[in-house]
């Protein structure tokens, strides 16, 4: 198992490095910050000094080298828009997004595992068709649209939920609901398919022949096997939740990392983009390793190979 985790971690590290390089150079290409921060008629000398002060005149590889050295000290430069260390700005926004994901993910998993398993128990039955149809709607609806329709219905028309902000638990209801929608829709289908396969397997037939009851067959025998493909897809959905968070945070004015990134791109705030991307990538990296560990725990064939 150790070997398996080590191999997978190594692969993730490769991805992480590729991303650091990619993001650094792409961010440098977004245009000169001098254009944005200095008046249009600023003299070339002023521009030069501005760039000189922040190190933007050095060759790219020098900037990159400085960036890497800084990384080792958790120093990712100064945010232009906040005049604070970029790491601080990002770490400040991070908990909000993390919280959003931490509330959403368990809801998604529990909801889809239960719905998918029950649908798989009688394929073609009333519940299965209903679940398939609703999950299809969930997977097909644009989340930004649900967000504003939600605002329209619950905040504007009925006035039972706030429109934006993070003050009270009520503020979290709509964002979490919107964020849950698509991943649940996708996962229900995955759970259903893998559970149908598991339930029609020979070991389930054998369990019936040994006199094991239906509840144990679904939740003890089939579910653990049926979960294997689900775990893989669930990790993809984790990246999907970050996607969703960008939209949800923008619509609901959540001061999370998604909103911060969009704001920073608009303001050409290199340091914050780098820090935010890195922190997000690191989070995805950690999630991937956790998923691999879960996989190995559930499937002994991986643990003992």
């Amino acid at each position: 198992m150790g070997g398996f985790i080590f191999k997978r971690s190594l692969q993730s590290v490769f991805s992480l490095i590729a991303l650091i390089v990619l993001v650094f150079f792409l961010a440098r290409l977004t245009g000169s910050p001098a254009d944005l921060y200095l008046p249009q008629d600023a003299s070339p000398e002023v521009r030069f000094q501005f760039n000189e002060r922040l190190g933007f005149n050095d060759p790219l590889y020098v900037q990159f080298g400085r960036f890497l050295v800084g990384l080792l000290h958790f120093d990712m430069g100064e945010s232009l828009q906040f005049s604070r260390p970029a790491v601080d700005v990002v770490l400040n926004a991070f908990p909000t997004t993390l919280m959003l994901a931490a509330i959403t993910m368990p809801i998604v998993i529990i909801l889809s595992v239960i719905t998918g398993s029950l649908a798989a128990f009688r394929p073609g039955g009333v519940f299965d068709r209903l679940a398939s149809f609703i999950s299809l709607i969930g997977a097909s609806t644009p989340n930004f649209w649900v967000a504003i329709v939600g605002v329209l219905v619950f905040a504007v028309t009925f006035r039972i939920l706030p429109t934006s902000g993070t003050g009270t638990p009520l503020h979290w209801v709509l964002p979490v609901a919107v964020l849950t929608l698509r991943p649940t829709g996708v996962l229900v289908q995955v759970v259903r398919t893998s559970m149908i396969t598991a339930l029609s397997s020979a070991y389930v037939k054998t369990a019936k022949a040994r006199g094991v009851g239906s509840r144990a067959i679904i939740f003890v025998h089939a579910l653990r096997n049926g979960l294997l493909p689900v775990i893989t897809v669930a990790s993809d959905q984790a990246a999907g939740i970050v996607n969703g968070a960008v939209i949800v945070e923008t619509v609901f004015g959540f001061p999370g990392i998604g909103k911060l990134m969009i704001d920073s791109v608009m303001l050409r705030d290199f340091a914050v983009i780098q820090a935010a991307v890195l922190v997000t990538a690191l989070a995805v990296f950690i999630i991937n390793i956790l998923v691999d560990i879960t996989y190995a725990l559930v499937d002994p064939r991986i643990r003992y190979s």
Partner: peptide
């Protein structure tokens, strides 16, 4: 009938690898 299965009448199948649940000892 379930109580009879495995206790009074039991059965084994052709492919024992498929018939054993891969994730339990």
């Amino acid at each position: 009938r379930r109580k009879i299965n495995g206790k009074n009448i039991s059965m084994i199948f052709q492919d024992p690898l498929a018939a054993l649940n891969p994730v339990y000892p």
